[in-house]
């Protein structure tokens, strides 16, 4: 019991420290203010969009939340563990009765808390902005389309925030294995490729989409299908296209997506711990 409490105390202390460290980073505010400016200016494009203004406003708002959240994850998260190793500040931590697992988890939760707080703040701003547009009648939104802030849009925002659960885990993993620059590149690539995972599934179908299918084709198709389930699939969290049209997803699907985020990030964090455990500091 004591061991468990000590573990939690250590993790919380490291996470809080990481969060404070991230809050002091100026780049965070640059991204945050820029995101707010983009969301606020969405209506300018909405004005010239011939009857589709609310869709354009929603598209820009959701895309900004995702994109700037990712930038914060990459730029703040890439150097997270590596900087500690480079500056040797990690010694002061692990010299104490703090395990490397606690260090990894604490750093992860600290960064995740930071990214989620910033994205949630953007989401709140976006929601209020939309509500003001609808209330003032500037959005051209009818009641049929779901009022000020339709529920699917809230779900889409939750899932945007939730994709960082996976992305930050990947950032921490790369940060504990390579240099900050490579880590940033790898995290960004993981983000882009994670959103294209659906194509692996698609290719697995395309391989079989011909007249004579060989055993090799079937093997390739199966391999691609397995690969689809193994790579980080960030497209799973992307329901923006449907949400802007006020189309909801089922509770089952929503729960599966949340479970996917938690389970996949746990696997990545365990892998990060395994790598860091073997590393000579």
């Amino acid at each position: 019991m004591n061991r468990c409490r000590r573990f939690l105390n250590n993790v919380v202390a490291i996470a809080a420290n990481g969060f404070r460290e991230g809050v002091r980073d100026r780049i965070l505010y640059v991204f945050f203010l820029f995101a707010l400016a983009v969301i606020a200016s969405a209506k300018l494009i909405g004005w010239v969009s011939v009857g589709e203004d609310i869709k354009v406003v929603r598209d820009i708002g959701l895309a900004s939340m995702g994109l700037f959240g990712v930038m914060i994850s990459i730029f703040v998260g890439a150097s997270l563990v590596h900087r500690e190793i480079e500056r040797h500040t990690i010694y002061t931590v692990i010299a104490r009765p703090v395990g490397r697992g606690e260090f990894i988890l604490g750093r992860y939760l600290g960064l995740l808390g930071l990214v989620c707080s910033v994205t949630a703040a953007m989401g709140l701003f976006f929601t209020v902005y939309q509500a003001v547009l609808v209330w003032s009648g500037a959005a051209g939104l009818s009641d049929v389309e779901g009022g000020a802030v339709p529920f699917p849009l809230v779900r889409a925002q939750i899932l945007i925030i939730f994709q960082f659960v996976v992305l930050v885990a990947l950032a921490v993993f790369f940060s504990s294995t390579t240099t900050p620059v490579l880590s940033a590149v790898f995290t960004f690539l993981a983000y882009v490729l994670g959103h294209m995972a659906g194509w692996i599934y698609r290719f697995s179908d395309m391989v079989l989409d011909k007249r004579s299918v060989t055993v090799f084709d079937r093997a390739v198709s199966l391999f691609l299908k397995v690969l689809y389930y193994l790579v980080p699939n960030l497209e799973t969290f992307d329901i923006k296209l449907r949400a802007v049209h006020n189309l909801d997803i089922s509770n089952f699907e929503f729960a599966c997506v949340l479970l996917y985020g938690v389970a996949y990030s746990a696997a990545v964090l365990l892998a990060a711990y395994l790598v860091l455990r073997r590393r000579q500091l």
Partner: peptide
């Protein structure tokens, strides 16, 4: 780690 990955795959199948 593998168990977590398996859970993630199951969720993805869902």
């Amino acid at each position: 780690a593998l168990a977590c990955l398996a859970a993630a795959v199951a969720a993805q199948v869902g």
